[in-house]
């Protein structure tokens, strides 16, 4: 368990939304209980663990690596997609396996495009993940005009604003319901345990012990159905 001579209480940044339930479960199995975060009437953004030796910060997905990179949180749980998009100096410690989805290029089902290279040069591509999209099309040697959106990206092709989108696909239902089809995957993503590199190097064993427990505890037998990531 957490040693008494640790340097300061461990702070963990957890992402609101689809990953939260599984994140809390994995920490619970490793000895830190943040289940107060799952209470429906919880409005607290900083919650102590039941044992009182650690605290959790409840933040938006993309902000998890930010809190960890600045050292305000020593550990965090966030999707690999966010790490690829934001490229912050954090240590990726454990592939937690849950929150599986893929980053994909999608087009209108009726468009006739079958792979990303079919798209015309300088076509418009809408995405929340413009850095991932930029790197992908650059490696394809296909110049595109990227349009940054913050949500409901599927509307890009529907309204005719863009030929394609780059977005996360979990079950594919949102795409299907909106008449879109994924034509190529950029990468697949799962939740990662991340850490502040300097805090890990200064660690006297408490942090490393927690990381190892999280890595080795049995993955929850009950795998909840993933909420489709929008």
């Amino acid at each position: 368990m957490i040693t008494a001579n640790q340097r300061s209480p461990i702070t963990v940044a957890l992402a609101k939304g689809a990953l939260l339930k599984d994140s809390v479960r994995r920490f619970q199995a490793a000895g830190l209980d943040f289940s107060d975060l799952l209470e429906e009437d919880n409005r607290l953004l900083m919650v102590p663990s039941r044992c009182g030796t650690a605290r959790a910060l409840l933040v938006r997905n993309a902000d998890v690596p930010v809190y960890v990179a600045y050292g305000q949180a020593q550990l965090g749980v966030v999707g690999y997609d966010v790490l690829r998009e934001h490229q912050l100096p954090v240590a990726q410690l454990v592939d937690l396996g849950f929150g599986g989805c893929r980053m994909a290029v999608a087009v209108k089902a009726s468009s006739g495009y079958r792979r990303a290279a079919d798209l015309p040069a300088h076509c418009r591509v809408a995405s929340k993940f413009t850095r991932c999209a930029e790197a992908f099309f650059e490696q394809l040697d296909l110049p595109v005009e990227l349009i940054h959106l913050t949500g409901s990206v599927e509307l890009g092709p529907i309204t005719g604003m863009s030929e394609a989108i780059v977005d996360l696909v979990a079950t594919g239902r949102t795409l299907r319901d909106n008449g879109l089809v994924a034509i190529e995957d950029l990468f697949s993503s799962t939740a990662r345990l991340i850490g502040h590199p300097l805090a890990l190097r200064l660690d006297d064993g408490a942090l490393q012990g927690l990381v190892e427990r999280i890595a080795t505890v049995q993955r929850p037998a009950h795998r909840p159905v993933q909420v489709p990531v929008r």
């Binding site: 240590a91 990726q92 410690l93 454990v94 592939d95 990662r192 850490g195 590199p197 890990l200 190097r201």
Partner: peptide
């Protein structure tokens, strides 16, 4: 060797 060195100094056990 170079990949291993980067993984070690960047603290990247997954790599």
């Amino acid at each position: 060797r170079s990949l291993a060195r980067h993984a070690l100094t960047d603290f990247d056990p997954l790599a």
